[in-house]
């Protein structure tokens, strides 16, 4: 059944029909046909990761992907009211997590979804944003004193700056647990370059994280 919802949603996206895509996704939630988690994991995430562009012109594929991402972003922002509603129904874990992308990293959809998942699991999730410079991350950690810092990285070149960020955070704030995730870490040796406590490859494991350690 969920597959049918996904295929219908994909059809609207393929047609680049923004209004219908957003309307349909929100309707699925309103009518409780899918849960928020199912919406993130089975509909929104695959619609981006499984995006296939049949056009031979790479530039056309790029703007098509960007338009699709923009539609998904609008859906995610709209879903946050449902996240607030769910948060009121679950006990707080009393832990704060700061979610962001490092400088020059503009692919933020994964980070937004991760921040929603943390919120749905009882964490106080603070989403800082895409393209966050190293010094701003360090000052945010100093000010917010989070229990965990989650870094989402897509472009493999950004491992360079992620290494610098994780080294500085670990030297200045060793108690802050660092969570890393994103496509960049699928590249050979990428994980071994950075200092981290947990590599997030499956969003459903967020619920079982405690203070950055897998339990």
């Amino acid at each position: 059944m969920k597959k049918t919802y996904y295929n219908t949603f994909l059809k609207y996206l393929d047609d680049e029909n923004r209004d219908a895509s957003i309307d349909y996704a929100l309707q699925l939630i309103q009518e409780q046909k899918v849960t928020l988690e199912e919406m993130y994991l089975e509909i929104l995430t695959p619609s981006l990761t499984e995006f296939f562009c049949s056009n031979e012109d790479e530039e056309i594929c790029i703007w098509k992907e960007h338009e699709r991402t923009s539609i998904i972003r609008t859906i995610l922002e709209s879903l946050y009211v449902y996240v607030i509603h769910r948060k009121k129904q679950i006990p707080s874990k009393g832990k704060t997590v700061m979610v962001l992308c490092p400088s020059e990293e503009y692919h933020e959809i994964g980070a937004i979804i991760v921040s929603h998942f943390f919120a749905l699991s009882g964490y106080d999730a603070k989403y800082i944003g895409a393209n966050t410079p190293k010094n701003d991350i360090v000052s945010a950690v100093k000010a917010l004193k989070p229990d965990m810092l989650a870094l989402s990285v897509t472009n493999y070149y950004n491992i360079v700056v992620t290494k610098k960020i994780t080294e500085e955070i670990k030297s200045k704030y060793p108690d802050v647990k660092i969570i890393v995730g994103g496509q960049a870490f699928s590249h050979k040796d990428a994980l071994s370059q950075v200092q981290y406590d947990y590599h997030l490859s499956d969003l459903t494991t967020i619920a079982s994280l405690e203070g950055g350690k897998s339990i």
Partner: peptide
Amino acid sequence: DRHIAEKADRIIEIKDGRINLDITK
């Protein structure tokens, strides 16, 4: 130039005469 480096199959960073980072796409 990051636009050249990010398109390479492999990025090696040298820092203070040592290999600081070495990643392959």
